[in-house]
Amino acid sequence: MSRALDRTGIWIGWAFFADLTNALALTFGYMFSRPVTMQYPDKEKWLPYSRYRGHHFLKRDDEGEIKCVACELCARICPCDCIEVIPYEDEKGNRHPAKFEIDMARCLFCGLCEDACPADAIALGQQYEFSSFSSADLVIGRDDLLGKPGKATTGGGVVAARLNTEQDVLVETSEPQGYNWWRNIRRT
């Protein structure tokens, strides 16, 4: 009995285009939902999570000396062979890199150098805006690596930003954490 009723209900619905009406109602609902667009780079910018693997940076110890001991383990483990280290010995007899170059054009951001490092000297930071017009510019030396931004402390989210053609995209908000972009994704 109920199945027969269901059947007739389905047929009546079919005759009055219930399925098409459902589709129209769905798209109408979507029209008034929030867009998921992130307006990068001229209005908004994504703050990376602290686990994000971006541009490498080299760390200093408490005395301000470079932590790297030039063991070349990172150069060894690098799957794309993009790290070149040349060591030297300073007056106190400590090994340090005279030359530490990373070819960002070849790097695949696996983070193995960070894992291999015995001195906790190299890590992958939060910077992700370093595109360039020439691949030669992407070979980053020791001193540049020391100046690169470190891991994000907060992050994950979208904040207000502005495009600055001289530099990168400038974050224009004092909030350390942006709004959660995922909240706009409709799950039904």
């Binding site: 979507y30 029209m31 939902s33 929030r34 998921v36 667009t37 307006q39 001229d42």
Partner: peptide
Amino acid sequence: KIAGHIQQRMGPMR
């Protein structure tokens, strides 16, 4: 614009 908002985009903005 309508296309954009139906697809959860913004459409032309710039």
